[in-house]
Amino acid sequence: MPVILGRIPEKKARPPRPITRRWLIFGAAVLISGMGLTFLFWQGERTVPGFWLFAVVLPILLWGSMFSARRAGYKYQCVGQDKANRTINARHATDKGRGQRFAWFVGEFLVNALECEHKPTQKAAITKMPILQPVMPRRAKKPVRHSRLPGGESASDMLASLQAELNGRITKLMDSLPPAMTCFLALDVEEDLPVLSLSGLPEISQPVIRIRDLSGLRILDYWLDQHYEKPSALLVISAQLNDMPENDSGEAISVMLMTNCRLKDTPPVSARLHRPQMNHSGDMGHALRHAMLWAGLEKNIPLRGWMTGGTLTSSDALSSACENYAPELTAQRYVNIDAVAGFAGVAAPWQALILATRQCLADREAQMVVIESSSDFQQLCAVTPE
C-alpha cells in the first residue's frame, strides 16, 4: 500500500478569538438599553433597590453570562483543535516514518547485451556508448534497432540456456543470508515468457514465500509495507526477452537481493534502496518531492538521475520538477539508459535500480531512478549510500 500523505487532513486552524473591544462595546449597549427600558417602563419609585437591579445589575449579569458562554465556547474549540492537530501530527509522523522505510542492498546479477560483452552497463550509459543497432530478431523478417542477447532461437531457448547460470548465481546470493531468515520471492517476467524454472531454490536453506500479482517497484513498495517488522529478504527476478521486438527496445535479465535489516556481514560501504513513489497523477513535482522525502534527501544535495521509458529526458515536467525540488539534478546529470541499451520492458525498473546502486557504491553519491512505464504512470526511487 503506497504512502499517500495527501490523504491526511490539513491541520485545523485556530478558532477565532473573541474580540474584547467588541464585547465591551456590546456590554455598553446592553447596559444603556437596560437602563433606558427600565426608566421608560418602571412604574414605581426609582430609588428603591429593585429599580437599580433591573436598570444596572440585570443588564450586567446578562452581558456577563453571554461573554462567559462565548469564552467557554472558544476554550472548548481550542481544546478540540489541539486534540485534532495532535492526531493529525501523529498520523503524519507515522506515515512519514512508514514512507521512509528502506532496504539494504545485498547483491545483484544483470544480463544484457552489454554485460554479455563484459562492459559495465552503468559506465556505458554515463559515457553514452550505445549498443543499440539494427539486428535481426529471432522471429521477424526485417532488422530492428534493438539490443539483443546473443544466442537462442527463441525466448524460451534463451532462458533455458541461462537457467543453470541463474540458479548458480541465485544460490550464491542466498548463501549470504542467515539460514533462518525468510526470503520473499517475486518473479517480474514479460507476459509471453514461460515461467522461470527455480529448480535451484529447493537447495536453499531459507524458507521462501512467493509474492504474486505485482510488477515493477510496486513489489518493493508492498514488501516494505507488509513485511518490514520481522527480518526478511526480498529476491526479485525479472526478465524481458523479445522474439519480435520494437525499435529502441532491449533485452535484460536481472536478479536483485535486498534485506529489511543490516546483515552482520554487510560491508561498510553499502547502499540503501528507499521506498518508491508511484505517480499516477502526472504531477512530476509531487512525485519527485515525495521520493526525496522518503530518502531524507535535502533539496541541494548532489544527485544523479537514471531515466528509462517514455520521453523522460526531454520532458518539461521532469525538468521543472528538478528545478523546484532537486536543482542539482540538471540535464547533464541525467543518464538515459534507453539511448544506450534500449527500453527493457518489465525488467527496466530493476535494471535501472541495479545500475543506480552500482554507481552509488562507486561514487558514494545519492541516485534517483525514474521509470515511465506508460504516459500516465511513473515510478521514482532513490538509492543512497550508507
Score class of each variant (00 low, 15 high):
Met278Gln: 05
Val106His: 02
Gly305Cys: 13
Asn112Arg: 00
Ala295Thr: 03
Ser314Met: 12
Gln206Ser: 13
Gly296His: 08
Ala339His: 06
Glu191Lys: 15
Asp283Cys: 10
Leu173Glu: 13
Lys230Gly: 07
Lys264Ser: 15
Gly342Pro: 04
Arg17Gly: 10
Ala239Ser: 14
Ser68Val: 10
Asp188Ala: 05
Leu61Ser: 10
Val369Phe: 01
Asn167Gly: 15
Leu149Asn: 00
Leu61Thr: 10
Arg358Lys: 08
Asn279Glu: 15
Leu353Ala: 14
Glu115Pro: 02
Tyr74Ala: 07
Asp243Ser: 10
Pro302Thr: 05
Leu312Lys: 04
Ala348Phe: 04
Gly342Cys: 06
Thr182Met: 08
Ser249Trp: 04
Pro15Cys: 07
Glu298Phe: 00
Asp265Ile: 07
Ala155Ser: 14
Gly99Ile: 02
Gln100Arg: 13
Leu217Asn: 03
His118Arg: 09
Gln367Trp: 00
Ala326Val: 00
Ala84Gly: 10
Thr266Glu: 06
Cys322Trp: 05
Leu198Ile: 10
Ala326Lys: 00
Val255Thr: 09
Leu312His: 02
Ile219His: 02
Asp338Pro: 11
Gly342Val: 02
Tyr325Pro: 07
Phe51Arg: 05
Gln100Met: 12
Val30Met: 05
Met307Ala: 13
His92Lys: 13
Gln77Trp: 09
Arg46Trp: 01
His146Thr: 13
Phe343Val: 08
His146Arg: 03
Gln122Leu: 13
Ala252Asp: 02
Leu303Cys: 03
Ala356Lys: 01
Arg218Asn: 10
Ala164Tyr: 10
Lys11Asn: 09
Ala84Lys: 13
Leu5His: 04
Val189Gln: 11
Glu10Phe: 04
Pro302Ser: 10
Thr20Pro: 01
Leu380Asp: 09
Met158Thr: 13
Pro302Lys: 03
His118Thr: 09
Asp225Phe: 00
Leu353Asp: 03
Ser147Tyr: 02
Met66Leu: 15
Thr330Asp: 09
Asn167Ile: 04
Val208Ser: 08
Cys322Gln: 07
Gly168Trp: 09
Ala344Glu: 06
Arg218Cys: 05
Asn247Arg: 06
Ala331Ser: 14
Ala69Cys: 09
Ile253Pro: 02
Leu24Gln: 06
Ala362Leu: 08
His286Lys: 14
Thr94Lys: 12
Lys119His: 03
Gln43Tyr: 06
Asn260Tyr: 03
Val269Thr: 12
Cys261Tyr: 10
Glu229Lys: 13
Val195Cys: 05
Phe26Asn: 11
Lys119Trp: 01
Asn336Tyr: 06
Ala239Thr: 08
Glu117Asn: 14
Ala347His: 03
Lys123Asp: 15
Arg98Leu: 12
Asp248Asn: 06
Ser320Gln: 14
Ile8His: 03
Asn279Phe: 00
Gln359Val: 00
Pro245Leu: 08
Arg7Ala: 11
Gly6Met: 09
Glu365Thr: 07
Ile371Ser: 06
Asn336Phe: 05
Pro231Arg: 14
Ala295Gln: 07
Phe377Val: 02
Leu31Asp: 04
Phe54Thr: 04
Gln163Gly: 10
Ala140Ser: 15
Ser315Asp: 15
Val269His: 11
Val195Arg: 11
